[in-house]
């Protein structure tokens, strides 16, 4: 464990909690892409199956359980509790355009052709694109509430910190996980455009982030 990965995991947790609290307190999921949240729940469900097969550390177990619980709670709030505020007209990204290539690629590119390995690889590739429906929704509505942008900021920060973690582990431990690193870099690149808008619009106190 290193400070970059710890900060990254905390940033990831903060992002998930920010979103969950926003939906719970405002009793509405307007502007939130339910599809992205379902994809994230799928990412955790396919990646954390090793909870039942290998014990890494207490931290590892606790964080996996927390991420699974919070992501399913978010999906529950969006599609059940506050479904009448779910903005389905704007949450129209075709997730099959993500799932088909990700499934195909995880069968082609993996470390071992075993169910757990393929599911893990699937979850790595899926996480890289899971935010697309949310970013698509923001471009479609032309704006995002500031709390939603803070959610995206911490999500992007988590990915950027993981890249720092991999640089650190490469130099300190010679660790290099090609699938995770390549996919993680692609995922982080998707946030760059958002980061620019976040800094130039939200942090300038505009409140909402309205796209040009």
């Amino acid at each position: 464990m290193n400070i970059f990965r710890l900060a990254g995991d905390v940033s990831h947790l903060v992002a998930i909690i920010i979103l969950l609290l926003k939906i719970w307190r405002s009793k509405s999921c307007a502007g939130i892409s339910g599809k992205s949240q379902v994809l994230f729940a799928l990412v955790f469900s396919t990646r954390y199956l090793d909870l039942f097969t290998v014990f890494v550390s207490v931290y590892n177990v606790v964080m996996k359980v927390v991420f699974l619980a919070l992501s399913y709670a978010t999906v529950y709030l969006i599609y059940m509790r506050f479904r009448n505020s779910y903005d389905s007209e704007n949450d129209t990204f075709r997730v099959e355009f993500l799932l088909v290539p990700v499934i195909g690629l995880s069968f082609l590119e993996n470390y071992a052709f075993t169910p757990l390995e393929i599911l893990w690889t699937f979850s790595i590739f899926l996480e890289a694109v899971a935010i697309m429906p949310q970013l698509f929704m923001i471009t479609k509505t032309g704006e995002a509430e500031s709390i939603t942008t803070h959610y995206l900021f911490f999500l992007g920060l988590y990915r950027a910190l993981y890249i720092a973690n991999w640089v650190w582990r490469y130099h300190m431990e010679g660790f290099f996980d090609q699938i995770a690193v390549v996919s993680g870099v692609v995922q982080t690149i998707f946030y760059c455009d958002f980061f620019y808008l976040y800094v130039t619009r939200v942090l300038r106190g505009k409140g909402k982030m309205s796209l040009p």
Binding site: H12, V54, V56, N60, A112
Partner: peptide, 10 residues
């Protein structure tokens, strides 16, 4: 080889 390596990252 890498498949057996413990995946310790979240």
């Amino acid at each position: 080889e890498k498949a057996n390596k413990t995946k310790d990252e979240l």
